[in-house]
Design a protein around this nucleic acid. Structure first.
Lengths: 195, 195
DNA sequence: ATAAAAATCAAACAAATGTTCCTTAATTTT
DNA sequence: AAAATTAAGGAACATTTGTTTGATTTTTAT
């Protein structure tokens, strides 16, 4: 087989361009970025990359080039510190969106939250981890939930027994919290950690 | 203040379009998707959304609309089961790309790997978790590494002592593995879990 | 070396797409 | 209810961008 001289360079350029800009480069952008002098060259290179399965292209549309083999994504707001007395989804708490795999963290209405403390250490949730939460007001027995306790969001295992709500820390050094009623913010469906 | 009748609908359309296609819709796509009959309308709506900080737009370029407040992303290959006798990065092992936050999981040359077994349970790595790994051939004492042992990738804590390599499981029920030499595939920098 | 194959170039062309201008309709304010 | 303000519609226009064609250069194979 024949060597495709510029194909790798162009692929990397397109990939990085998309990742940093959020949209694809034009053939002319590619010319500048890769020292190519004819627009016909990136045009043909893109076709080869599509054939190799590295890119996807939709018709003759402009900038309608996307990376292939890429799973779907979801943009999830990160809720930072929960200010006392503020509704949790107030814009004060919003710290930007994270793009995460949409097929890995499933659910409709997701948000992310920083984990504080070591109350869930037995099930591998550490201080500083970020949990992915599906927004919902109710929970089933045994669910890991985010609940609003004294104006602050906390992650615990949820039980309802004899009309009382039990928030159970997964940490042998800690006691259960028992309430008549508790506001549930959502159910934890995932976790991300930086090591 | 005055109500912007279609702005929310258009924003959601653009967001979902980008997330599922990988590129932005045109004003005409928006017309069809939101039952708008003039291309001038989405044009003006986009400008309002940019003003509100929900979208970013670059010049008058085509499809150069992107979601704002979005952190950078990286596309990371998921290496599935490591086949015996195969180079780990062989295409047989490749199971597609995950898009993950580029500012959360840092490093140049990342890949992802499924965690098997419970050898790292004490530091919160569970069977079924996916680790994010920075590709490198060496490691420092105490690093969590992915090493190739008997044609299979394993996650352990790395130590080098008296010329021997110690792979230390973070599980009190398991013994250290000691080798004269071990192939390091990378250093674990992050973790993702589905709950 | 020579021929064949493949990649690149250059320039014109065609299509896709964003923009403007003015009109009309809807909503809010007075 | 009238006036003011803002959103949306319609159509032409301008720009951006992808595509084609044929010549030219580079690489590979004979």
């Amino acid at each position: 087989m024949r060597k495709a001289y510029n194909d790798e360079k162009v692929y990397e350029f397109i990939r990085d361009f998309i990742n940093s800009n959020g949209y694809a480069p034009t053939v002319r952008d590619i010319c500048k970025g890769c020292n190519i002098s004819s627009t016909a060259t990136p045009y043909q290179i893109i076709n080869r990359l599509v054939e190799r399965g590295l890119l996807k292209k939709t018709g003759n549309k402009n900038r309608a080039v996307a990376l292939a083999n890429l799973g779907p994504t979801v943009n999830v707001p990160l809720i930072g510190t929960v200010a006392a007395g503020q509704p949790i989804f107030a814009s004060e708490n919003f710290e930007g969106y994270y793009t995460i795999p949409g097929d890995f963290f499933e659910g409709e209405d997701l948000f992310m939250l920083n984990v504080k403390g070591s109350s869930m250490i037995k099930i591998g949730m550490f201080d500083g981890d970020k949990v992915v939460v599906k927004r919902q007001q109710t929970a089933d027995n045994g669910d890991i939930v985010v609940a609003l306790v004294e104006d602050s969001a906390t992650v615990k295992r949820f039980f309802k027994k004899n009309g009382k709500v039990i928030l159970h820390p997964e940490n042998d050094d800690m006691q259960d919290f028992i309430f008549d009623n508790v506001e549930i913010l959502g159910k934890v469906v995932g976790l991300m950690r930086n090591i």
